[in-house]
Nucleic acid binder design. Structure first.
Lengths: 115, 115
DNA sequence: TTCGTGTTCAACCAAATGGTTGACGACAGG
DNA sequence: CCTGTCGTCAACCATTTGGTTGAACACGAA
């Protein structure tokens, strides 16, 4: 398979509105492929493919229950994203704080180039 | 343009490791296209395309400074993702709480698998 | 064993994606 | 004005993506 990191797969999986909707519905309850497919105007096979993408991203897992393959959401994977996001959000905010402090510490400026 | 919602564009933009790295670097300081391109083993044009994707997602904006086009990160857009993520994380956790409560309210089980 | 239901596999297709190279537009500095 | 630098536009190409249909597999029930 592709040599792509999980974070990329997670973001990529959630970039599709149908998949995002499926994830949203799975927060309420586990569901079978047919149940998941029902609201959408696409074939069951297409939904099956979407589920494979979600599974490759680690966002869902599947049990076997007779012919059924109930799909279960693995919410912990959300942390992968929030960790990344918060890390850089923090970094950006830190930067703004420093910038504000700098501006405040300056008297009024002509054309100062400071390093 | 594509009739795709912003959240999809944001997730999609961050699904690419190069773009994620560019965003990471932009948390430290604004940068020009050439500066951004320097560490990667691709053409400047390719980086320019990546920036367009990030811009369409609302993740960056560009000023004009003579020939330069300094790129600036718009961190607020992160909120779009965290809002979505936290909403469904909460929903999933809520569900587990209810499930736990239900199990606890039951008398002892025939096929109890407890660890 | 045969049938029906749920799901996946395989082949195919159109559109999108990420890369390339080459030419061009915008601008500062001789 | 000419020149060099920064960046984008255009055309092209290979790969991936999201969809289709038809066949096959897995399993419970009859």
């Amino acid at each position: 398979m592709a040599a792509v990191d999980q974070l990329s797969r997670v973001f990529s999986a959630l970039a599709d509105p149908t998949r995002r909707d499926m994830v949203a519905r799975l927060t309420v309850a586990d569901a079978t492929v047919n149940e998941l497919a029902e609201p959408y105007d696409v074939s069951v096979q297409a939904v099956s493919k979407h589920l494979r993408v979600l599974e490759d991203a680690g966002l869902v897992s599947r049990r076997r229950d007779a012919q059924r393959r109930p799909v279960h959401l693995e919410v912990e994977v959300f942390d992968l994203m929030t960790t990344w996001i918060e890390r850089y959000r923090r970094r950006a905010e830190e930067r703004y704080r420093r910038l504000d402090a700098l501006l405040e510490s300056l008297p009024d400026e002509p054309e100062g180039d400071i390093e």
